[in-house]
Design a protein around this nucleic acid. Sequence first.
DNA 1: GATAGCGGATAGCATCACTATCCGTTCTCT
DNA 2: AGAGAACGGATAGTGATGCTATCCGCTATC
Lengths: 218, 218
Amino acid sequence: MRISELSAASGVPLPTVKYYLREGLLAAGERTARNQAEYGAEHLARLRLIRALIEVGGLSVADTRTVLAASDDPELPLNEVLGATHDAVTRRAAPNRGGPAWTEARDLVLDRAKEHGWRVEEDGPALDQAADAVAAVIAADMPELYPLIDVYFEAVEPMARREVETVLSMGSDDQIVRGVVIGTVLGESLFNALRLLAQQHISTELLDPGKTGDQAGA
Amino acid sequence: MRISELSAASGVPLPTVKYYLREGLLAAGERTARNQAEYGAEHLARLRLIRALIEVGGLSVADTRTVLAASDDPELPLNEVLGATHDAVTRRAAPNRGGPAWTEARDLVLDRAKEHGWRVEEDGPALDQAADAVAAVIAADMPELYPLIDVYFEAVEPMARREVETVLSMGSDDQIVRGVVIGTVLGESLFNALRLLAQQHISTELLDPGKTGDQAGA
DNA sequence: GATAGCGGATAGCATCACTATCCGTTCTCT
DNA sequence: AGAGAACGGATAGTGATGCTATCCGCTATC
């Protein structure tokens, strides 16, 4: 498979494939001559993964490179791959991090986490992002929304358990690492979409209970 | 309050405040002279909301303007505000939308939704985003992850119900609209962060069950 | 009356994710 | 064997985005 075939098979424009090559996201093919190279199925799969992380997961090219580099390294322990993935899917620091209101929000999250018996990694970006969101809700002066924090805690725990179990049962370390990256990034996008779908379903049900033709299964 | 005080109080750089004014995200203050204007608490609150949507929610300036314009319009029905919000928090079309694999993924989501008794809005961006994610998981050839789709469906339904109930019980239409926007955008960010935190907690629990000092509640 | 800050307009800048062009080489087709 | 397309690799250019800087004549404030 030559580069133009790789481009055609993946639907990624050829200059973009070259760009990913340059940026080190995609390994060069096996050179068969000074200016010819052969690409295989693994290159196609990798290219599709790159596009999925960027387009579906919304990662930047730089974050995608970091995550893929981490997942490629067979020496790197799983929790470092997880850390790189978490860095990629969380947002950069809001400017008011560290302020008193933010610290209060962070403590609130930490407190709830402790109540739920979670052992929380305080160094990661996830806690900071949670604090950003809670601080913003507090700053918006919407105390009616506070109970949702606990709703989220309750909904997320069994879900995360199933996710981790699913990924850990995937056999080889290689597969687990792939599962972590894909599951974390694409799972987020899928869950967010389903949340909107569910909100629409529920609000239709509550506000417009007419014209029900469906089975109201549970 | 003059513009420099607004900037200082919000922590937003003054040129950026001017930029938001220009872009129509923030209403002009009450002019007290040809080149002087007075800003009030509502401007400060709005500015904080703008920053929260952009920095915490990750919205673009353009999407933020659209969402805020929709939420400002007292004539606009709630479901149109919700639609604008959904457009803002979902990703733009992936290029392979509409292809056979994508259509299959979309049908899979639709099918699961029907099994769960959801009345799904097929026109919105959420279903498309869900299909993008599912198609990418299928393309990545990771069937082990498929069961997670149902896990997400089960986790999201009661959560979304509580969210919708919470927002709808907020009293005035004004408050509800605010609640929809803030809840949708910041809720997503918060939930995503808590998901990572929970995954970390669970994987620590499963992989490294030593050094437990906490109450292993739940 | 000096001077700092103002609102408004215009221009500039850094980043990002490509996209285009050029080069000399090699493959492919006839 | 010769023509022309495609190749890998390098360099430069592009359009969108989210600010940031500068300038203007005017006004508030000390």
